[in-house]
Amino acid sequence: MLEAIKSEIEANVSGCRLEVVPNSSPSGQHSLLIDCERALAVARFLRDAAHLRFDYCSNVTGIDWPGKEIVEKEKIKKLVDGVEQEVEEVRKTQSAGHLEAVYHLYSMEKKHGPVILRMRTKNRSDQTHLPSLTPIWRSAEFQEREIFDLYGIVFDGHPDLRRILMWDGFEDHPMRRDYVEPDDYEYEPTPHDEVLEKSKQHTHGVRAR
């Protein structure tokens, strides 16, 4: 079904690049990766096309995919001590990672779904802009605000993009995987794992009892 929708979008929205993201779990919910430039047009088509009518955007999720260290091994012929030898060279590169917004669409009129759309930012630091789909589905309004708050994705075209759960003066984005929580240790009688580590710093190695 997703392949059919994909080719239909490609036929109707000119110049859009789509990619099916497969899902290996038994749920079989595959998703469509859409490009940011044409996202609004794709969303409008999905909502308004008479036989699709995805009029209901149920769920908007932010996901953080931090950059991974990519280790590449390459065999290079090199002159070692005057003799040509094959030497393995290891190159380590850091991928930029990305933030992702996932939209679950259903149709209340046709009672079908879900179609899952994904959008990705270019990286996690300075290019974190995505087009807001709130003009198409108002249900995304609070959920996109939440993603802005907790992940730091900036939704261009959102009518009221403010922090929603954290307070206005808060910095950083707590749902990111590299978020470091502030050191506000309180005495804990039964510390474990990270809390134990933290308590050691505060109680100078004495396990509090």
């Binding site: 039964t190 510390p191 474990h192 794992d193 809390v195």
Partner: peptide
Amino acid sequence: CEKECPPKCIS
């Protein structure tokens, strides 16, 4: 139980 306890209240 110490490991599985969701709020980590067992020590």
